[in-house]
Amino acid sequence: MSSQTPDANQISHANQIPDANQIPDATRTPDATRIHNIGYRSYDGPRLGRAYARRSLFSQSLRGAYGLGRSAKSKVLPMLLFAVMCAPALIIVAISVYTKADKLFVEYTQYAILLQLVVAVFLASQAPQSVSRDLRFRTVPLYFSRPIERVDYVLAKFGAMASALFVLTATPLFIMWIGSMLAKMDFAEQAKMFGQGLVSVAVLSVLFAGLGLVMAALTPRRGFGVAAVIAVLVISFGAVTTLQGISYATDNTGAIVWLGLFSPLTLVIGLQNAFLGARASFPGEMQVGAGVGVVYLAIVLGLIAACYGILMARYRKVGL
């Protein structure tokens, strides 16, 4: 259904009220180079609805976290961090294969903890770009005037950020696992430890994504968001480990495990120590028992739920 209107290649045609029947086609001089306005075409194709829109937002946000579909400049930092995250894994594999070691000299569950700063910087840089931009430039109403609802938006953004972190933290583990097989290490044992490592980084990814998005969503100014994420993740970890060190030095070892509840990363450390067979990495090799482990689990789940709740409340006000 393409009717040709006479004002085809005029930039200023918007201020006229064009009428396709006004000038008969015969009065126009044929000119091959003219751009023809082929008229408005209506859309009769499928409308895939809410679930599809949510999926599209998820994939757009996940790709966006790595700078895909964004400017070349915004690809630099996430890609660099991804490379930095994977490089040690390659080195570990190389050394393990070369020395014909019977196990990797860094455990799967310890890897993300060793490289926590890379994870924190990734989250601090990408969480604000995922949610603060929409708030700051007031793009959110464009979403909510479409079939998706608040819950779809929050779930898509939350899921995308958690998935981006999972890709970041799980890829090096995968490299190490492949390496362990190349080095002909015990398959069953490595597979089990790799699995435990994956569960651990999955928990870490969801928890960190929630915290990062909440802080970014509450601070529309991007700079503040970055600072807040770094502060909460890195400074709280530093403070907790310092206090744990003091407790250990003063023979107050009972407090060490409980202090671990006060920073996101020590929560993950405690949780994987209790349930995922990870080595205790608190001072004095303090073990988190199953009982305290349940408290850790409850707090991790509670924090994730709270982050979701805060995000939902945050977007209630935005509306249009």
């Binding site: 931009r133 929409d134 430039f137 007031r138 005037s145 079939p147």
Partner: peptide, 17 residues
């Protein structure tokens, strides 16, 4: 949701990144 699928909305304020 069904209405918003068939209706377009142009906000008054700036909304473009």
């Amino acid at each position: 949701p069904e209405i918003r699928e068939r209706v377009g909305y142009m906000p008054e304020h700036d909304c473009l990144p």
